[in-house]
Each structure stands twice: as C-alpha cells, then as structure tokens.
Design a protein around this nucleic acid. Structure first.
Length: 598
DNA sequence: GGGCCGAGCCAC
DNA sequence: AAACGTGGCTCGGCCC
C-alpha cells in the first residue's frame, strides 16, 4: 500500500561543492519539491537548518548550517522546474529573509487541497493529505525537535531520524502533486489554482514587508478611550455608592466599596439593590431595561471592548527585528475564497475610530489606500444582467438613490435620506439572502411592510430576483456554486428526513446566493494583488503591498513616486476587475496619505 | 490549568 | 427576539 514511501533514499549534502555537483539533477527535472526546516516560525528570527529538495529521480537534504545555497539560487528562482511545497508561504519567507532566495514558480499542495475540498473539509495538513492520496500514515513529525533550543541541529548536528523525516516530507509531495493535479482538472479548478499559486509569493512578500504603526499615537488613543471609560465607570460608581454595603473582598482580603463592572454576579446584585431584578446582564437584557444605569453600562462595555480588543495586545505583536506588524494572511481563510487574517487580525481594525490613522508610512514614504467602489453590487449587476442595475453603474449614478426612486416611484431629487437608507438596506441585504423579518428590524418597519418593500423591489429588478432564485436552487440541486473566476464552493446536503431539513436548505440557498458575489470579489482582489506586484517588480519601483481587506489594497511607496504608483495601482485593479466583469464597469478609489485612510 | 464553545462585537 | 453572507478576538463559563 505504502510502496516504500516511508523510507526515502536521499543524499545528504554537507559541502558547497557537493551542492554544485547535484545542480544538473535539479535543472533537468520538470518538478522539484521543496521543504525547509528552521528553528522558529518567524522568518526574521529563525535560523535556516535544512533545505530538502526532491526530484522524481533523486532526493537531497542540504545542511544549511554548512552549505552556501548560492549555486542553486538560479534554479530555485527560475520558472522551471515547478516548485512543489506544502504551505509554500512559510518556506518562501524563510528562504527570502535568511538567504535572499525567492521561488520562481509555486505549486502549493495545501492551497490545492483547499480548492479541491472547496468548503467540504478544512483538513489540509500534510498528515491528512498524505493519508488521503498515498494511504500513508505519517508518524508524529519531528518538526518540534528543530525548534527546541537545546536541539543539537542548531549546531549542525542532525539525527538520522530528523534527516529521514525531512527527506520524506519533501519526496511525498511529488506523489501528492500528481494525484491532486488530476482532481484539479476533473473539477475544472486549474485557472483558479494558477491564480492562487501566484498569490502565494505575493502574500509572503506582503507579510514580510508588514505595517508600521505609530506606537505613541496608538497609546494616546487607548488612553483617551480609557479616560472616557473611567469617567463612565466613576459615574456608575457614584450612582451605586449611596446604596452602600457593596463591600467586595478581593483575593488578598482587601475591601472595596466599588462594584466590579466586569462581573455579572456583582452587577446583578447591584441592580437588585436598586430594585431591578434582571435574569442576566446580557446586552439584550440591558437594552430592554429602563433603568438609566443599564444604558451607561452598555456605553462602558463599548469602551472596554475597544480597549481590550485593540489596545496594548496589538502592540505586543510588533516584530522585535523589523519594528513592524507582520500579520498572518490566510489566503483561503474563508470558504468563499476570501482572505482571513490573524496575529493580529488587521482586517477588523475599527474603521471610524482613531485606530486606523495610527497605521503610518515610513519616513519618506506614503501610504496608498485603494478600494473597489461597490464591487459586490457591480458583480450582482454582472451576473444577473439586470438592465436597471447595469444602467445605474454605466452612467455612474448613485445606485441606492436610483433604487429608492424606482421603488417608491418618485423623482431622483425627491429621494430623502430614509428612503435611500431603505433601498440601500435591501440592495445589500439581498446579497446575504436576507428576508423580510431581519430587514424590518433594520429599517424600522413592520414585517408586512418590509415584505411589501421587497415585493416592489423585485418587480423593479426582475432579473436580480431571477438570478438569486436560480443560483439558490442550483446550489441545492448541484451541491455547489462557482465564482466568475472559476472558484468552487460545495455544500453538504442534508438528508431529506433530517429534522431541520428546510432550515438547512435555506442556509445553503443563502450561501449559494452570496458565494458567487463574495467569491468573485475575492477573485478580483487576488488578480489585482498579482498584477500590482508584477508591475512593481517589472518597473523596479520602491513600492510595496502591505495590506488587503477584501475589496481594499494598501501599499507603501516612496514619496516622490507615490502619485505615479497610485495610478499604477488604480490601473491594475481596474484591469483585474475587467478580467471578470465584462458588462458592468469597474470603479476604484485611490488615496495617497501619510496614514491608512478610509 | 488548558481546551472548547457560545456570546458579543470588530471588519467587509 | 426573530431566517443576514464571510471571518477573528476576547471573555466567561464549562469540562476534564
């Protein structure tokens, strides 16, 4: 079953001359799998220990503590052979930072697996795919042994076990690659796979560059929030003090006459003394509560949340070597194809608070923020071919105002704020498969009125309704949907006799409606990232991608070329949009600034 | 004391 | 309160 894959024969390279001798083996192979071992996950702090290379004919394990990788730099940086890696971003970053070597072309087995499973599974580890494709049960990997500070490998002493595993991890990728490729072809995923593989190195470079944060400004902002929170806290305590007998005793026996506002237990007790019996202190409960204290408490929580979620914790992630933030961009974080981001998640920095403006350009540089204007609604116009929607975008009108005008049968200049808001709520809500009940809550009308509004809306935009109905049905009928970039998302269909059958089907219909829209937006942004990166490289510009938030791309460029770079970014983003949107025009808004602007 | 999960809230 | 899509982070509560 496992056909000798457990024990791969390999050559251990411990001198530069040996490496020179094997270079032809690599140059003449169509594919070479690549793996690295370092002693740290952070490419800036890691020491490169081993580099494993495997061709179908022969495998090599290179002792990077002794060997100069210069002789194989050209073959790694060339388009051919194709480099096959599991989670290539890691190896790319390590090789780039520690040896100045990049990888010219990438096939990533982890990314490929995410495309192949397309939402049905998130099991994409090497362990999982080795078993799936090769029937191979990998023993617990010795990767941890490399990161142990006491590990002799740090001094260039490798155990036979370490070397064997290292060689095997590289070699098996060749076999996995062949089987995955068949799957990618069968599922018609080659185009999107090519895109994703190009995105890998762009994301690696983006992460390596990272974002600069103005620490002083950030701390000042936290302090302002803390002051506001403390002020509210004092106000609350003042209300409570006259009630007395609130003596709390902490772990050290210290007595306090204040209530811990973060303790639900103490809060309930306090409310009780005020004559208010509450079942709990959840947001909903407090919202319904008439007592003025409830309102202020919610305000307190708002500040508290900001401070804990975006306070000092983000500053702790600043890299000690670069002094910048290097978040982890998860290229296929969402099943729709969108990025996710963590450590820290820079995709959820509050948009309208003082936090964003703390992200700044390096001295002598500018930040360029570029975002697609209403890209998801434009995608809906494209896929539905709705004549009214398309016309609105072709003539660059305000879609929400136009929608309101048509729904309520009033002239454009008679559309007030409320009617525009209602139309906007429907326009956006549709993309989420939103129903009358939730719409009613948002725009403050009864459910019947909301249903009425939706009816009118769909009479105006018949093609939109037809498209939404069809795509929802096809998600259930076929078990999957696709984006305009060819990306696929599959669904696990419930059994007909499942107790929640209708509920589950409803969920799949909504996902089926949303995924082509959200996922096409992801396709476009990813093409744009690749185009922009290639353009920067081709022109050798002192400009760098540093961040992306779904329909937005942030770059940093030297001051004197910032305006030129802004035009390049805009052009490449439009080019990416037009690659997938043929009927609906694409619009991009670009800003050049000293900080991250919304 | 660590893992897991839901609630609640941040983004698009 | 409630049939609104995609994520991550923090907290509190629960379990082992």
């Amino acid at each position: 079953m496992t056909s000798g894959l457990e024990n791969v024969s390999y050559e251990f390279i411990t001198s530069t001359q040996q490496l020179i001798d094997i270079t032809p083996n690599l140059e003449n192979s169509p594919t070479v799998s690549v793996d690295t071992e370092g002693n740290n996950l952070d490419p800036y702090q890691a020491k490169l220990l081993l580099l494993q290379l495997a061709t179908p004919e022969k495998s090599f394990v290179i002792d990077c503590t002794k060997v100069d990788l210069g002789p194989i730099k050209p073959v790694l940086e060339a388009e051919k052979p194709l480099k096959i890696l599991q989670n290539a971003k890691f190896d790319y970053s390590l090789l780039k930072v520690q040896r100045g070597i990049t990888l010219g072309s990438i096939y990533d087995t982890m990314i490929a697996e995410r495309l192949i499973t397309c939402g049905l599974s998130r099991e994409i580890s090497l362990k999982t795919i080795a078993e799936k494709y090769l029937g191979l049960k990998l023993e617990k990997v010795t990767r941890e042994s490399f990161t142990d500070p006491k590990n002799p490998a740090l001094r260039g002493k490798f155990s036979k076990e370490q070397l064997d595993y290292a060689a095997r991890d590289a070699y098996i990728l060749l076999e996995i690659f062949k089987k995955q490729l068949k799957q990618l072809k069968e599922q018609d995923l080659i185009d999107v796979a090519k895109l994703e593989f190009k995105v890998v190195s762009v994301v690696a470079e983006m992460e390596l560059k990272g974002s600069l944060i103005d620490i002083q400004k950030w701390r000042t902002h936290i302090k302002e929030l803390e002051e506001k929170r403390n002020e509210i806290s004092r106000e609350i305590q003042k209300e409570l003090r006259p009630l007395a007998n609130f003596t709390q005793v902490d772990l050290f026996g210290n007595e306090s006459d204040t209530v811990n506002l973060d303790s639900p237990l103490q809060l309930l007790e306090a409310f009780k003394k005020l004559g208010v019996e509450l079942p709990n202190t959840s947001e909903a409960t407090l919202q319904k509560c008439d007592h003025p204290l409830a309102k202020i408490l919610l305000e307190y929580r708002g500040y508290e949340k900001m401070i804990t979620a975006f306070g000092e914790t983000i500053l702790e992630k600043i890299n000690p070597i670069t002094g910048r933030l290097h978040p982890d961009f998860l290229q296929l974080g969402a099943d729709t194809g969108r990025f996710a981001c963590n450590n820290p998640n820079l995709q959820q920095i509050p948009a309208d608070s003082g936090f964003r403006s703390c992200f700044v350009a390096s001295p002598g540089y500018k930040l360029i923020t570029a975002d697609y204007s209403q890209v998801e609604l434009r995608i809906m116009a494209e896929v539905s071919e709705d004549p009214v929607f398309l016309e609105a975008f072709r003539t660059d009108q305000d879609l929400h105002t136009l929608t309101a005008s048509q729904m309520f049968r009033i002239p454009i200049d008679k559309v007030d704020k409320n009617k525009r808001f209602q139309a906007k709520s429907i326009n956006f809500g549709l993309m989420y498969g939103r129903g009358p009940a939730s719409l009613a809550v948002q725009i403050g009308v009864s459910v019947d009125e909301a249903r009425e509004l939706l009816d009118v809306y769909f009479k105006t935009y018949r093609s939109v309704k037809r498209w939404l109905d069809n795509i929802g049905r096809s998600a259930v009928k076929n078990g999957y949907v696709r984006t305009l970039g060819g990306r696929k998302r599959a669904f696990t269909l419930p059994d007909k006799d499942h107790v929640d059958y209708l509920k589950l089907i409803g969920g799949i219909e909504r996902q089926g409606k949303n995924t082509p829209i959200q996922g096409t937006s992801a396709d476009i942004t990813k093409y744009a990232l690749v185009f922009i990166y290639e353009e920067f490289k081709k022109r050798s510009l002192d400009a760098y991608l540093i961040h992306t938030v779904h329909d937005e791309i942030v770059s940093e460029a030297r001051e004197d070329i910032a305006e030129e770079v802004a035009r390049i970014i805009e052009g490449q983003m439009i080019r990416a949009g037009e690659l997938l949107l043929k009927k609906c025009p694409v619009k991009v808004e670009v800003k050049v600034s000293d900080y991250w602007e919304k």
